[in-house]
Design a protein around this nucleic acid. Structure first.
Lengths: 208, 208
DNA sequence: TGTACATCAGTGAACGCGCGTTCACTGATGTAC
DNA sequence: TGTACATCAGTGAACGCGCGTTCACTGATGTAC
């Protein structure tokens, strides 16, 4: 990376600024939070002039989209791992939910960017429902595995119910008011599993 | 209100600027969204100089807190009504959830301010768990009514599970990807009830 | 009842700030002959 | 292999903007005598 080079050895042409900008954005998100994520700050963090990003991204939104996309990639990997590790079919859904929330807890600012990008588009990228590794498809397929209804509408409702519940927990899990519960239950993961146990769909209690 | 007076009849002293500012903020939220909610814009909307609000609020954050508080009041009223209208005990929980989400749908920007204020504090105002009419207590009491576990920790887990799930749905209900489901099911409320039916706790399927 | 005066609740100009974006530019690179 | 030249990917200064907040101020209000 750039930091490893002595200043004078840094070439005029960066080589892979596009990627470096996305990395810089993620670094900023981790250290300063979403409100600090301006185009200028990203350029600064990447060690480049404020105008440089415009050779790689149409505008700020396009850079944010690229950052969000990287977030989804990481999330999908985490969920694949969770699904593979789970012992029973019943456990798979809870583990997927836990993995989702833990991702959001580990990368809260990145998660926020992902959510904002999704909401502003109001329609998720096409591969969400197409890629088999996407978070959506993994939840849906696990529901099928667990014996969910054959009805297509019900299956979609169930998948979205799981997604919405996980999203809500992801956004609220950091609230201080949960601290004493986490303590009583012996840690954050136990707390998450406890919450999911009341949400039917994650506990294998398929309804309807 | 001020608008009703001819400009020259407007007194130098406003009379109730504090309240007028909160009202102006809410008007701005409804019409322009949360990103437009600057202190200057609120003062402008209230027809007052940018410095005037500082006689009533320490800073922008304090004004936002007042706006959020008004939001919680409205939400609590809506949930009380929903609980009173519901036919059966089982229906009460779903109706509470639907009312919560519908509030967020009708006042999306206000809901966002409420959520942001809660998160930044990371601990909710004390009366959340004290006032019997608070959203939290209404959900908890309805869970008791529906025969939830006596165990205090489990009850708290269940209440928070409901809250988190409702929050997730509230934030995601506007996503365009749900449109075809809403259409198939005959409207937004049917969609919401469909989602809740998969979340156990709202469907009267108490687990554990 | 009238008046002096403290206090309250506004004004409007100014502060410094960081933002997204554009512009004319220039140094580096790669290709054609 | 060397050179002319088009193209690419940077620079750095500047644009206009709206922001939160502070300041010295002034008009309106209410109270004490």
């Amino acid at each position: 990376m750039r930091e490893a080079l002595a200043p004078e050895s840094r070439p005029y042409h960066h080589g892979d600024l596009s990627r470096a900008l996305v990395d810089a954005a993620r670094r900023l998100l981790e250290s300063e939070g979403p409100s600090a994520l301006s185009l200028r700050a990203v350029a600064r963090e990447a060690g480049v002039s404020p105008a440089a990003p415009y050779h790689h991204f149409k505008d700020k939104g396009e850079l944010l989209d690229a950052v969000a996309q990287q977030g989804w990639d990481i999330l999908n990997v985490a969920m694949t791992a969770a699904r593979a590790t789970a012992l029973s079919v019943q456990d798979k859904l809870t583990s997927l939910g836990v993995a989702y929330v833990q991702f959001a807890r580990e990368h809260p600012a990145l998660y926020r960017v992902m959510y904002d990008a999704s909401r502003d588009k109001a329609d998720l990228p096409a591969h969400f429902h197409a890629d088999n590794d996407s978070a959506y498809c993994q939840v849906r397929d696990t529901l099928i595995e667990a014996g969910a209804s054959d009805d297509e509408v019900e299956l979609e409702l169930a998948t979205n119910a799981a997604w919405c519940a996980a999203h809500g927990l992801a956004e609220m899990a950091a609230f201080k008011q949960f601290d004493h519960l986490k303590e009583k239950l012996g840690g954050e993961e136990a707390f998450l599993r406890g919450v999911f146990s009341h949400l039917g769909i994650f506990a294998g209690t398929a309804s309807r």
